[in-house]
Simulated assay, not measured.
Amino acid sequence: MTTRTPQRTTATVGPVGTRTGSLPHRVLAVPPGAPADAAAHFAARLAFHTDVADVHHALAAGARDLVVVDSRSTEAWDQGHVPGAVHLPTARMAQDAREILDPAVPVIVYCWGPGCDGATRAALALARLGYRVKEMLGGIEYWIREGYEVTTRQGPQRLPADPLTAPAAAEDCGC
């Protein structure tokens, strides 16, 4: 019996966005933006998004310069929410935001998780009302998956961190 060794095809990288050889890929089919454009893009993303670890760190440190808003239904809120969050369902934003939120305080809004646009809709509604707002990426799903405590109708609860989303033996991911 003869075994065949697979032939390796080599490729060299040419000018940005091109590749020579027989192993084309899509990664650089559209070249990266200019550094200044990339800096503006990523700064804009950070101006509108934050993550659960940063929100948790701020709340644990006693931050009073922001308010966290849970935009889900009452049933979802009762099931578990970020401790200290304000409950303001997206459907009630236009009617209730001015009674509940101070327009001078930035709002961090969240919903279920990355598969849900609820927080995005809530953030849009708040921005249209004149609030400075960020969306908490990952929502309550990643808050729970990272092992942070939630407040439920029955009281505080905490599940173990999911090692796919949070380091098992460290305080944070280091990013």
Rank of each mutant, 00 (worst) to 15 (best):
V16M: 10
G17E: 06
T18Q: 15
T18M: 11
T18A: 15
T20N: 11
T20H: 11
G21W: 11
G21R: 14
G21A: 13
S22I: 12
S22V: 12
P24R: 04
H25N: 10
R26Q: 13
R26P: 07
R26H: 08
R26A: 15
V27T: 10
L28T: 13
L28I: 10
P32K: 07
G33P: 13
P35V: 05
P35I: 08
A36C: 06
A36H: 13
D37Q: 14
D37A: 15
A38T: 14
A38M: 10
A40T: 15
H41L: 11
H41P: 00
F42M: 08
F42G: 07
A43K: 09
A43E: 15
A44E: 15
R45L: 15
L46K: 14
A47W: 14
H49S: 14
V52Y: 05
D54I: 08
D54E: 15
V55G: 02
H56L: 04
H56V: 07
H57A: 15
H57L: 13
A58V: 10
L59R: 07
R64S: 14
D65G: 08
D65S: 10
L66C: 08
V67A: 11
V67T: 12
V68E: 01
V68W: 03
V69G: 02
D70K: 11
S71D: 07
R72N: 03
T74M: 12
E75S: 12
A76N: 10
A76R: 10
A76H: 12
W77S: 02
D78E: 09
Q79G: 07
G80F: 00
G80E: 00
H81K: 00
H81F: 04
H81N: 02
H81S: 01
G84V: 02
G84S: 06
V86C: 04
H87N: 11
P89N: 06
T90R: 10
T90Y: 08
T90H: 12
T90A: 12
A91C: 03
R92M: 07
M93V: 15
M93Y: 05
M93W: 04
M93H: 14
R98L: 12
R98A: 15
R98D: 12
R98W: 03
E99W: 02
E99S: 13
D102E: 06
D102G: 03
P103A: 12
A104F: 09
P106L: 09
P106K: 04
V107N: 03
I108E: 01
I108S: 00
I108T: 01
V109E: 02
Y110V: 06
Y110T: 04
C111G: 15
C111D: 03
G113P: 01
G113N: 05
G113A: 10
G113Q: 07
G115W: 05
C116A: 05
D117W: 02
D117E: 04
G118Y: 00
G118A: 09
T120M: 05
R121G: 07
A122P: 01
A122M: 01
L124S: 09
A125Y: 01
L126S: 07
L129I: 09
G130A: 04
G130S: 04
Y131N: 01
R132T: 15
R132W: 03
R132K: 12
R132D: 11
K134A: 01
M136N: 01
G139Y: 00
G139W: 00
I140T: 05
I140E: 00
I140F: 05
E141H: 11
E141F: 05
Y142V: 04
W143D: 02
R145Y: 11
R145N: 09
E146Q: 13
